[in-house]
Design a protein around this nucleic acid. Sequence first.
RNA 1: UCCGGGGUCGUCCAAUGGCAGGACAACGGCCUUUGGCGCCGUUGAUCGGGGUUCGAAUCCCUGCCCCGGAACCA
Length: 571
Amino acid sequence: MNDTPDITTEVDRPESTDFIREIIKQDLAEGKFDRVHTRFPPEPNAYLHIGHAKALWIDYGIALEFGGKFNLRFDDTNPTREEQEFVDAIIEDVRWVGADWENRLFFGSDYFEQMYQWAIDLIKKGKAYVCDLTSEQVIEMRGAPTTIGENSPYRDRGIEENLDLFGRMRAGEFEDGARTLRAKIDMTSPNVYLRDPVMYRIRHAEHHRQGDKWCIYPMYDWAHGLEDSIEGITHSLCSLEYENHRPLYDWFLDELGIYHPRQIEFARLNLTYTVMSKRRFIELVDGGYVSGYDDPRLPTLAGLRRRGYTPEAIKDFCSRIGVAKVESVVDVAVLQDCVRGHLNKTSQRVMAVMDPLKVVIVNYPEGQVEEFDAINNPEDPDAGTRKVPFTRELYIERDDFREEPPPKYFRLAPGREVRLRSAYLIKCVDVVKDSNGEIIELHCTYDPETRGGDAPDGRKVKATLHWVAAETSLEAEVRLYDHLFAKPNPDEVEDGQSYFDNLNPDSLQIRTCRIEPGVTGAAPGTRYQFERQGYFCVDTDSTADKLVFNRTVTLRDTWAKIEKAMRKGGR
RNA sequence: UCCGGGGUCGUCCAAUGGCAGGACAACGGCCUUUGGCGCCGUUGAUCGGGGUUCGAAUCCCUGCCCCGGAACCA
């Protein structure tokens, strides 16, 4: 509270920047544009993933920073693969991540009439023609990157004939694939996208918004720049694979002489231990490797949401990874660090025992129940406290006791004293085993003087354990998630193998835990920290009778590291 | 082979001719009623070769390597 605000550190600190922001600043300085307007243009044919979130935060973040505007626009130019279901899902995801398009939700298909008129303009200029070649012929005559293409025999059709034919294409006189409208550019260009690209194809298909109003549909390259132009986009940001398309983007806009946004490309996101493509999501879902597109192991936004990730964490992640043009693979540990950071500050602590070992406090009165005040969040004093019941019979984590403790292990062991979080100091006086030698129960004594966890004589204990009362604790299902793939790069495979061979068999473990009773009735989506273990959130499968938790991420586990190092060193 | 991009710590991103810095990871320590959080520290990089310059990650030349590109997909 009495910290002196350090003004100097806030002044002159270079704000986060990247090559795109630099370009925009320069454009603004040169007067090339006098405002900033971006857009996020998903095709409604798949679920969004964390890679889309990166793009979204570049688009939206830039608009925000420059005091500009941001549009959400569905690029729905292909009727055969787009569905309303995806429109709804994408809107939900974009909203969840926190981008605000205000009242600017648009659909590329709403511009079809304008696009059609512009196509006519191009035909009139002699810059577009109706081509009767089949798709196979077009491909053949286009040539290869290393060779040049060949002109279509229909390339020099007269303007009147082109106009007539194009009108009849729209009128539905021809079958699917019978003809196309092509731009007349250069069949010898080293950039194959400039070799008379198709602008319109015939598809007698029902469009999710336009119904059967149209039977010709614009191709991406033709449509996208027009959409940007119509919306007054200043900077059209997209991923690297469109770099080769930019000359075509520019060509259409220049030939039409209409408002011309600037396209800038950046590298898309890759993450370790996962895959990031629509095709692979489909394969994983269809193959039953994951439960659906919202499986918490998938990097889809729906999956991350279900897993317990917060929009804040995702936004933080996007700003940490930056923007550049190098193909990159970001360590998923960065993402995990982001959620831990946010959840540490915000989530309520609770005690849950994953693998219960019974503890009997032999000097504690039978039938007595005490209630302790446990701190809800040490990072947030305003979070207050909660009551946790304590009884003679308790459960602790099986892993928190060792009959023969290894070096550096300072949890419970015979004769050792530890603290039960928020309760008492207890000492292990006896180990009870069954006929197989399996430990079934621990007998401990408690020190009544240590109520709350501190010893009046000032003696210290090294360990604090989480625990639950045997009887009052609840049973709950926990789903422990780990990386979907066993290798950082799932594509690193032996000959004859596929990325499926790298699936991590332990990516999901289902357990039954005992949890303190206060969580009764927690709604799906509620997030907790299970002390000493990790962050968990109530799954959508959870019911009043049966709580189900997803593990979002584990806590950092220094002891596990030490143990691992010792095991290695021991060999 | 042609066209378009790109090569900085293990990873991601800075340094815009002037001390190669930050984050994650790793390692060590301090603190701790979470082996959590926090704090401190250590390790660690300019693809190679030439050149320009007082000075090069940055500019020039050259070589090498990586990615993308031949859907009536986006």
